[in-house]
């Protein structure tokens, strides 16, 4: 006889905790790629010394690829904040058992998360780059490179 599993279907359960558990799985998986990709681009491919306002601003302002970077950063910050704060909630819930204290803790946790999400999303979505500054920065960078190569020639 093979493996039958007769009558082995159950109603998929829903619920708050199940939804969070599933979210943690999916967001965790996505963050592996988003955060490691971010780390590779900003710390391995580019040097930390070269990363400043102009680097980020010119990346977000790029007419072709700008939306990809904005989407990347938006997804990453929101998933990271929700994933992290829900993890914090679950750890705190082991220590905070009284319902009234849990209400206070929830308010603090999700208040903080809301500040970070709103602040982060606002910056990423409505960011307007300072073109003059970027131009100046690019010119300075070129000049520095030129000076460096000139030193090498000497």
């Amino acid at each position: 006889m093979a493996y039958s599993g007769i009558g082995r279907k159950v109603r998929p359960n829903g619920g708050f905790e199940l939804a969070w558990w599933f979210f943690m799985r999916i967001s965790g998986l996505m963050l592996v790629f988003l955060a490691l990709g971010h780390l590779t681009i900003t710390h391995l491919i580019n040097s930390v010394e070269n990363i400043n306002y102009a680097f980020v601003a010119s990346r977000w302002a790029d007419p072709q690829s700008g939306w990809i970077w904005r989407l990347w950063d938006l997804t990453m910050i929101n998933l990271a904040v929700l994933h992290g704060f829900n993890g914090l909630r679950q750890i705190l819930w082991e220590q905070i058992l009284s319902p009234s204290k849990r209400v206070i803790a929830s308010t603090i946790i999700w208040g903080l998360a809301a500040v970070l999400i709103i602040g982060g999303s606002y910056s990423i979505l409505l960011f307007q780059e300072n073109r003059e500054y970027i131009q100046k920065w690019k010119a300075e960078r070129e000049a520095a490179r030129f000076a460096q190569s000139a030193r090498h020639i000497q």
Binding site: G5, R8, V10, P12, N13, L18, W21
Partner: peptide, 9 residues
């Protein structure tokens, strides 16, 4: 099983 509603393997 809670997520997928299946207890088959």
């Amino acid at each position: 099983a809670l997520l997928g509603g299946s207890i088959e393997m």
